[in-house]
Amino acid sequence: MKKLLTFAIAAGAMAITGLASAATLDDVRTKGYVQCGVSQGLPGFSNADDSGNWTGIDVDLCRAVAAAIFGDGDKVRFTPLSAKQRFTALSSGEIDILSRNTTWTMTRDTQLGLNFAGVNYYDGQGMMVPSGLGVKSAMELDGANICTNTGTTTELNITDFFRSNKMSFNLVAFEKADEVVAAYDAGRCDVYTTDRSALAAQRTKLTDPNAHKVLPEIISKEPLGPVVRQGDDQWFNIVRWTLNALINAEELGVTQSNVQSMKNSDNPAIKRLLGTEGNFGEELGLENNWAANAIQAVGNYAESYEKTVAPLGLARGVNALWSAGGIMYAPPVR
């Protein structure tokens, strides 16, 4: 009995110190991998193929973080989450990063105990309708049945849109995106609404993708980005600066194939990014070649975009660099 008690106290004490004050980076190092929360299957952002390989721009971000820490972009495990589950999974510590087409809003940032580490895709909410309805504008949608996901900004935006335009509608909100597609495909709803990028991706799953069209209106701002728990500044910085590194790499012309040779570049900005000048990696708690490893693993932002989102037929648009007419802009490494 006494032994049991000692054991229990020891285990309890270990658990307390283990859970209450661990830094995520130490945790991740001990585990040997980054646990990354992704979607349950959204082509272009996070999607698993038949053999369980995850691809997508959100997946790339997690791989880049893993590479920045371990020098190996495969040291990451993925947890598919529905929109409804995602924040609980993050705040309970089940995952280290949430990289799942998640919109940065003030409520989420200030009330859910979370921090957004940046934006890796600027999006907006759109609507899709069967072409056969002959609807040309969202203003003609009075009386519509609308399918979407629960636990999303989408639900809130669409409600705002119809309320402010004094139109009536019914919302049918599913937990999983696949069911939304299936129900819309079966004709349960006149409208399918979600982020425009997701519309492009989900459309490919319809029986006849060409029999539907996306309406011109964009009814919201959806800055999508990676999220971490509030209260661990070091981890927050690692995720934020890994994203910044990928964007800066595009701007500086550093690519997956030239990253090693670029280490000897004459440009001090490139040298700082790739760790041949300064001590930026160590200040983050990593090695100085952290960014080089990240770029080596997934390529710069443009390369990642071309591989993942572009095949959906989505042009860079606002997601082009600020120097190329877009708003993608990363603070400098210095």
């Binding site: 929109a83 409804k84 924040f87 859910l112 629960t150 599913f174 937990e175 069911e179």
Partner: peptide, 23 residues
């Protein structure tokens, strides 16, 4: 919740919790 019937777990522990975060 899987098929969009708005019962307690779906709308309160799901949608509402996602908006106010009071788990």
């Amino acid at each position: 919740v899987a098929i969009a019937y708005p019962e307690l777990v779906s709308i309160f522990a799901g949608t509402a919790m996602n908006n106010v975060g009071k788990e």
